[in-house]
């Protein structure tokens, strides 16, 4: 009895109104817009007046190739950036934690620095490096007698060129997460393979299985990041040439600029659904397979 009342009175040290500022801000500025998006996506909307038109916006979004290409490209974008970052960051992290490499601190900074620079700045820099005639990349390729391309002007290539720059800018985060994972592996596991194994055995049978949690985190973070990317595409190609590198978020912005608010919001809801349908199962699957070291 006495214990219970002490317990109850201690609860008073943690008043529920402490949630209030955070919850209020979050609900007003995030939840309400998000929930109302479902309604506005079903309307023809001028921001002052919303006329209910059912699923017309969704039909338009999915049937008009100029709009639906955004959906396809967003999936390609999210999948490829996430896969490439995951695959390239692991060897990089192994290298940056290895004993044989000198100046590791310097290289870590070098790989991480692009993360901190404005995405727009990175996008503009690379769009100039990738210029077809005078751009440094093609000049270098020509000098080496290698094939060169119109990186951002060729509709078949533009999206992949942007993906490359996204990986360049974001790989620092993936590398840091992997480095944390590798440094957390207890030394015993490495000692156990000392006798019968070279580097490859350690990489294949110790590092890869034991950094699994980091792998899951990197895949999830970069996949979600890929689906919501906008600025790098906008800075490098504006969705062009034509609509070749449009992704969902750039379509949403273009429709917003054109004043098609209902259509833009339908695109936004498609993005919510896409994230939920793809990320939630992935998350559940990953957390069921997490390991403890």
């Amino acid at each position: 009895m006495g214990k219970k009342s002490i317990h109850r009175s201690l609860q008073a040290a943690y008043p529920n109104w402490f949630y209030l500022p955070g919850v209020l801000t979050f609900v007003v500025f995030f939840i309400i817009p998000t929930v109302s998006a479902f309604y506005f996506s079903l309307t023809r909307w001028t921001l002052f007046e919303a006329t209910f038109i059912g699923f017309e916006n969704y039909v338009a979004f999915l049937s008009d190739p100029m709009l639906s290409i955004g959906l396809k490209n967003s999936l390609i974008y999210a999948f490829l950036t996430s896969a490439t970052k995951t695959i390239l960051a692991l060897p990089l992290a192994v290298l940056l934690t290895s004993e044989i490499l000198r100046f590791k601190g310097f290289y870590r900074s070098v790989v991480f620095f692009p993360v901190l620079v404005s995405t727009i700045a990175v996008g503009i820099t690379f769009s100039i490096l990738m210029q077809p005639n005078k751009g440094v990349i093609n000049v270098a390729l020509r000098a080496l007698h290698l094939p060169h391309f119109d990186w951002l002007g060729d509709p078949r290539l533009a999206l992949y060129s942007v993906i490359f720059v996204d990986v360049w800018k974001g790989i620092g985060i993936a590398t840091v997460i992997y480095m944390a994972g590798i440094l957390a592996i207890p030394q015993d596991y490495f000692d156990a393979t000392k006798l019968d194994g070279g580097f490859w055995i350690r990489f294949r049978h110790v590092i890869i299985p034991l950094v699994r949690n980091s792998t899951f985190t990197i895949i999830l973070l970069s996949f979600m990041g890929g689906l919501r990317t906008f600025d790098i595409v906008w800075a490098m190609t504006g969705g062009g040439p034509g609509f070749a590198s449009d992704i969902l978020t750039s379509v949403i912005y273009k429709q917003y600029q054109a004043g098609f608010y209902g259509l833009s919001t339908a695109g936004n809801v498609i993005l919510f659904v896409l994230v939920t349908v793809l990320v939630l199962p992935l998350r559940t699957f990953f957390s069921s397979r997490e390991i403890e070291l």
Binding site: G22, F30, P33, T34, A37, F40, N268, F272, V275
Partner: peptide
């Protein structure tokens, strides 16, 4: 509730509206 914010991107035009 907060976790939703980690996953779902913001709804831009409705935010402008509100």
């Amino acid at each position: 509730l907060l976790l939703i914010g980690l996953m779902i991107p913001p709804a831009v035009v409705p935010t402008v509206f509100w």
